[in-house]
Amino acid sequence: MNEVKKTSVEPDEWEPLKAYTNARIALGKTGISIPLKESLQFKMAHAHAKDAVYSQLAIASLQADLAGTSLPIHQIHSQAESRDIYLQRPDLGRLLAPDSVAKLRQLDSSPADISIIIADGLSATAINTYAGPFVTRLVDKVRQTGYSLAPLLLVEQGRVAITDSIGGILRPQLAIILIGERPGLSAFDSMGAYITYAPQPGLTDERRNCISNIREQGLPPILAVDKLMYLINSAFRLQITGVTLKDNNGLLE
């Protein structure tokens, strides 16, 4: 009877550091290869990241989650007509489709203080998971400060700079876009928040502030809302966002 030879996994001296990071360190080895378990986990993480890139906004679920804000909700679209075009033509994801331009022009022409935009970005999975409760908490905080709010916008196939196209029509003093971030092999559900003071076509990214890695295993959403409110209040006080607006509130110290 033939015996199956068992190959042991050699431990890695960095093993204790795995308690502090989700990065793929201290995988160990079996002979000259990584262990089968680690190889399979890598493939699973890659599959999650790919699925996130091709995920879609759960419009009905998001609308239900956002109903508690009592704000009108409008669904709009970028000029990228499909996911494949969105990935191949980033420029089209920054521009509004003609019918979306017409829809926004029909809204109340009185500019609000703040416009909140929700876009799929590169991980609608992140938006579907976190945007509903995040925006509900954010709207409550914004109302407590007395700022007026424009209708909520759900953008399909949108990129960060679509904020400027929207700002050129609605003319809010400040725009916030929540967007799914590029998935990594340890984070496929990370949401980002970008704020732009006086958004308008032609702005570049140094005019924005970003809060990244909003998720339970990164920057918890509750903390992220407080951090965002600090930036909002600072932006209105200084009338600027971007590289000249610094985050000095010490929330993460």
Rank of each mutant, 00 (worst) to 15 (best):
A80F: 04
R171F: 07
S110R: 01
A26P: 06
R24P: 10
M1I: 14
R215A: 09
R89T: 14
Q63V: 11
R171S: 09
D12G: 07
I85V: 15
K43T: 12
E13Q: 04
V135W: 00
T163K: 01
T136N: 11
I116G: 08
D226M: 05
Y197I: 07
V135I: 10
Q157W: 08
H48D: 15
G218C: 02
R24C: 12
I177A: 00
T244V: 10
S61D: 15
I34G: 06
T69D: 11
L96A: 04
S186N: 13
S234M: 13
F236E: 13
Q41N: 12
Y86I: 01
Q173Y: 08
L154F: 04
T163Y: 07
I166M: 03
A161W: 02
E181D: 09
D164S: 00
L245V: 14
T7K: 08
Y197M: 04
D205L: 05
Q144N: 15
M229T: 12
Q144I: 13
N233W: 13
E81Y: 08
R207Y: 06
W14G: 04
I32A: 13
R207N: 08
M44A: 15
P11A: 06
K5W: 12
L153W: 02
L138I: 11
R215K: 07
M191P: 04
N213K: 04
L107G: 09
S39I: 12
L104A: 06
M1T: 15
D120G: 04
T30M: 10
S100K: 00
Q157C: 08
G28T: 03
G28M: 03
A26Y: 09
D99M: 10
R105D: 13
R208K: 07
A47V: 10
L223D: 00
S165Q: 05
A47R: 08
R208F: 01
A45Q: 09
Y130W: 03
P35E: 07
R89M: 11
N209L: 08
A102N: 13
P35A: 01
P201V: 12
N2D: 15
K246V: 14
I118A: 07
P98G: 08
G158M: 03
S123P: 09
Q157N: 05
L231I: 11
Q200K: 02
Y194N: 04
N249C: 15
M229S: 12
V243K: 03
A224D: 00
Q63N: 14
I118E: 07
G167S: 01
P201C: 10
V101G: 01
K29A: 10
P151F: 08
N213I: 03
M44Y: 14
L96H: 01
A97P: 03
A19C: 02
G132H: 06
V243D: 09
D164T: 03
G202L: 01
G218Q: 05
K141A: 15
L40E: 12
P11H: 07
I195H: 02
A126Q: 02
L231P: 02
I195G: 07
I34W: 05
L223F: 05
M44W: 10
R182N: 11
F134M: 02
A131C: 14
S109R: 09
V142E: 13
L66N: 06
I240T: 14
V225T: 00
L231K: 03
L252Y: 13
V160F: 04
P221T: 01
R143E: 13
A126R: 00
I162G: 06
S55Q: 07
Y20K: 05
T145L: 12
I127G: 03
A45N: 12
I85S: 00
H77P: 09
